[in-house]
Amino acid sequence: METNSTSVSTTSVGLRYGLLTGLVSIIISFGIFAAQMEDSPIKYISYLVLIGGLVMAMRYYKANNLGFMSYGEGLGIGVMVSAVVGVLSAIFTYVYMNIIDTDAVARMTEKVRAGMEEGGKLTDEQIDQSMAMAGKFMNGPFMVVAVVISSVLVGLVFSLVISAFIKHTKPEFE
């Protein structure tokens, strides 16, 4: 049986769909930041975008690999997509918080402070120390690394599940 499918690499698929998914995530993140809705449930749309990107990437790979994709290939694609999305999101978040809307960090830290004060379990001194430490991590390289690592970990968890459903391993003795 002749097919028109050509084999593609997991890296090329991961990069392609990582860029597409990352751009969609940036557009959604910009809307959420601009509307100052960082705490609303709408922020979870970014997870749906990532899941959609992972599913589309794995299905594309499978369709262009003669209908086959191993579980490991699916995980590789998922981690690659998630890493690219994480890098793009980290760059966008850094630029947004340090150039476009410099008050975003102050708003977020104020919300965290208010939550700590409402809890009533910490003294004012402990809250001040916590906020000083959080301020160091919300700017600069720590934030960029944290965004990339969290994106890869979340993408890995999603990929573990999605790859299990989409995989179709080649028979060994064919």
Rank of each mutant, 00 (worst) to 15 (best):
M143Q: 11
V147T: 09
Y96F: 15
V152P: 04
M1H: 13
F158M: 15
N4R: 12
G74S: 03
I77S: 00
T21Q: 04
L54I: 04
P41W: 14
G22T: 02
F165V: 12
Y44N: 10
G14D: 04
I27Q: 08
I45F: 14
V55F: 12
E172P: 03
F142K: 00
G119R: 13
P41T: 09
A134I: 13
V145D: 05
N65K: 01
G53S: 03
E118W: 05
D39R: 13
L66Q: 14
Y94Q: 10
M131T: 01
S9L: 06
G86S: 04
L19Y: 09
V144T: 01
S163F: 06
I42E: 09
N98T: 15
A34Q: 13
P171A: 14
V157W: 08
G18W: 00
M1N: 10
G52K: 04
M1Q: 10
T3G: 02
V13N: 01
Y71T: 03
G120D: 03
I162H: 01
I51N: 06
N4C: 00
V148G: 00
A132D: 13
H168P: 06
A90V: 07
K62A: 10
I162Y: 05
V49K: 03
V13Y: 08
S163C: 07
M58T: 04
K62N: 06
S70T: 13
V147G: 02
K121M: 15
F142R: 00
R59T: 13
D124M: 06
D39I: 08
T93P: 02
P171W: 02
G78F: 04
A134E: 11
V81W: 01
M80W: 08
V85S: 03
F33C: 06
F137Q: 11
E174D: 15
V8G: 03
Y47H: 09
G67I: 09
L122E: 11
K167G: 04
S9N: 08
Y47E: 02
L48N: 03
A83G: 11
A83Q: 02
L20R: 10
F137I: 11
D128F: 05
I28Y: 13
V145S: 01
R113N: 07
T123C: 10
V105N: 13
N64S: 10
Y61E: 03
S82C: 06
D128Y: 07
R107W: 04
G140Q: 02
G76W: 05
A106V: 14
E125Q: 14
G31L: 14
L50E: 00
S29V: 05
L50P: 00
G74M: 07
G76Q: 01
M116Y: 13
I149M: 11
